[in-house]
Design a protein around this nucleic acid. Sequence first.
DNA 1: TTATTATATAACTATATGCTTATATAATGA
DNA 2: TCATTATATAAGCATATAGTTATATAATAA
Lengths: 114, 114
Amino acid sequence: MTVQEQVEIVDAAKVLKLLGDKTRLTMMKILADHDCCVCEFVEIFGMSQPSISQHMRKLKDAGLVEEERRGHWIFYSIREDHPHVQLVESVLASLPSQDDKVKELIKGGKRICC
Amino acid sequence: MTVQEQVEIVDAAKVLKLLGDKTRLTMMKILADHDCCVCEFVEIFGMSQPSISQHMRKLKDAGLVEEERRGHWIFYSIREDHPHVQLVESVLASLPSQDDKVKELIKGGKRICC
DNA sequence: TTATTATATAACTATATGCTTATATAATGA
DNA sequence: TCATTATATAAGCATATAGTTATATAATAA
């Protein structure tokens, strides 16, 4: 019905708005292949730690990512049980791989493994 | 290369940002099935004409839609030759049909045909 | 030509966004 | 316990965004 469709399209718009930021979009593309922690993204984007944390917060609040603590670090990963996973995955699938960023992280000895 | 990917993901983010507004997203979903003019969208969204025009302008500037004059009206339609058509189409495909809005337009005698 | 009609643009406003620096919190491990 | 480290939050700022009303433009049709 109309109401149901309205709600869905509004929700989809919210998801797309979140993905409509180049930093968050790149984060999501990276997370699709590698769990990462905040400090790794700080390194990758050359951006302040609070800025990264705030982006992750938005993604987490929307249910797009989830967190898991491992030792000192909190690793983020993409939630597979989000109502719009399919939308998100199809968007991410259309993007070029960002593996080079993780490779560079490893090369610089900044990749966290645990 | 990194530069190429950077550019692409940045462009995709711009497209997604445009789609990340509920009004524009709904417009695009409607346009996927029906060419429409500004005054029809004014009717559908109950929003001022300039507001609709400004949204269409953004979509046009990004190359997502094109215009064609027919009599009094300028009809907008989705451009099939946009570099991110595939991204756009896959997003729109995941949305519920908005045909009811056009049906209501017809029922109210506000649908423009020419 | 001139009136009408559809659309575009200008100017403005309120709110949202993305970033920064400074500070707080929370967990680890010595 | 206490220092360290990673992350989160607060506060502030500059810019972007989405809407409004008022006005301009452009095409049709009388």
